[in-house]
Design a protein around this nucleic acid. Sequence first.
DNA 1: CGGCGGCTTGATTCGAGTCAAGAACCGTGG
DNA 2: CCACGGTTCTTGACTCGAATCAAGCCGCCG
Lengths: 258, 258
Amino acid sequence: MTNSLIQSERQSFVHLTKRLKTLGMDSQTAIESVLGRITMRPGVNKAEDILVPGRASRHITVLIAGVACLYERVPNGSRQIFSFRYPGDFCDLNRHVLQETNSGVAVAAITCCSVGTIAHSDLDQLIRQYPELGSVLWRASMLEASILRKRMLSVSRQPALQRVAYLLCEHLYQQEVVGISSDLIPQSQLDLADAAGLSNVHVSRVFKELQRLELMSKEGRVMKVRNRQRLASLAEFDGAYLNMLRLRSEWQVKIDPP
Amino acid sequence: MTNSLIQSERQSFVHLTKRLKTLGMDSQTAIESVLGRITMRPGVNKAEDILVPGRASRHITVLIAGVACLYERVPNGSRQIFSFRYPGDFCDLNRHVLQETNSGVAVAAITCCSVGTIAHSDLDQLIRQYPELGSVLWRASMLEASILRKRMLSVSRQPALQRVAYLLCEHLYQQEVVGISSDLIPQSQLDLADAAGLSNVHVSRVFKELQRLELMSKEGRVMKVRNRQRLASLAEFDGAYLNMLRLRSEWQVKIDPP
DNA sequence: CGGCGGCTTGATTCGAGTCAAGAACCGTGG
DNA sequence: CCACGGTTCTTGACTCGAATCAAGCCGCCG
């Protein structure tokens, strides 16, 4: 119903809006329609689960603010983080597209998050009404797969130092896509370890080395990127797989996170 | 134009047909329309490239027969295999959906392959005409991402023995989805190494161990699965992520590869 | 028959995991 | 404001899995 969102709502959806545009959604009315179908859920605290595996659901979840991660637990107790999620990212498109209760994948908040939902039926209807939305979401899925492949390369072929550097670069780039520019790394070392397939102990050593190389530094407990150029070159990260997206977005906008 | 395919053509498309049905394409006329837009390319020999990176193209490629792999070369010379492709699989949907010249990903033939192409413009038109085709291809993309995640888990968290066992199970299951049932492993040990993120030397040792455990055996030079059950349990492979698909396919059909 | 690519085997090295203990940091509540 | 308890991070000692190097071997194709 709400084609005219009140100012504060529109405000909270800036990142989602940007992301949809980045993915090629040109019609403003289509975007407004999507935003109009979003129901906000209560905020989620750092380290809490946003989505648990196995449970069937009648709606999809979209991250409005904060950083989250998509992960799976393995029998031996450790967890693998597959990808990080940023404002404007959908968390469980797979549950919508593949009818199965989405294997063992869960989503957890890395920082405090605010999340919204859209009913599956609403989404279907939106896609029917705006076929471009279908393409946009398909594109988002492909992009995710593309990112995952690159990550796989890094995890399976690079030594620990480069692997961690790679993750850090990936993080910076993904934030930029939605217009957030910050040197601070919200992930804990354990998060990075679980994403890179390393032990927390080794990530700690790697981080020490990154500090020695003056690529990173510490601000209280959080890590901070000092020299992004050299970090990227160390990791052999080029971000070319996001180029396509960059072309479509007003690239220089900088918004610092709260 | 050809809604009435001649018998031999229809024959060569059995796997693609099965795959489309498996993915939820119910209308026979829609399937025939898709098949009608396929142009066959000359066969590709074992170890030859089917698709090279970077080159823009006006059509997408679909694997009709044989086994191929999607891979990327890394600066240091080694290669990472991201996934294997089976009859009925599309090789470069990403190039269609993301306009970019698809990063560094290439496709190579593991065995002799026959491949077909569909012009991007034809595909667009087909999707417009049969919206379900859009969903089907989106679903195929999501499924691929899902498989990739599972693989990532294995690569980053399991020791070598399990990793290789996992790949073998994945291979068997993926072949079954399109109705091929065979114990023989067409991949060379080097292929498996490049997919598992191991050295060829170590894969050789792992294979010796698999033989000792009576899970695998050698037939001339090719490997053969002896005990699939125990192999799957060793690898902690459950194939649940393909369950959804199994429900939709006539599961017991067995077709031995040439 | 020769030669080549894929597989095997052994010796050695090294990166990263594990275990264990301690330190720094954080939020909490007295 | 400070003492407390729990994370998260750090450090060191030790172990071990897998990479690398280097030959030699088998099966295949010309």
